[in-house]
Amino acid sequence: MNRSQQLAISENGFIFDPTTGESFTTNQTGLAILNRLKKNESSMEIALKMREEFEVSLEELERDVADFIDHLRTYGLM
């Protein structure tokens, strides 16, 4: 099961996993990505939507989203 689905995520970027009790913090960009992952959006969909909010190329956004997802995998959250 994708752990990101069960995370409790607060508006200030505090993330709590109710299954393990682990907590993490992230910035507003990470928060935006996480909230979209929770809605089952793909990394491409996330990058496309974020392009509307950030003045960054799609290529760069795709890379950043992939990096962030790698971080989540490292922490066992994906």
Partner: peptide, 20 residues
């Protein structure tokens, strides 16, 4: 409970309620 902080004797000092 998940132990967040334990003493040198291994006794829980801070924890958080979880549903595992």
């Amino acid at each position: 409970i998940r132990k967040l902080w334990i003493t040198s004797l291994g006794k829980i000092w801070t924890g958080v309620s979880i549903r595992n």
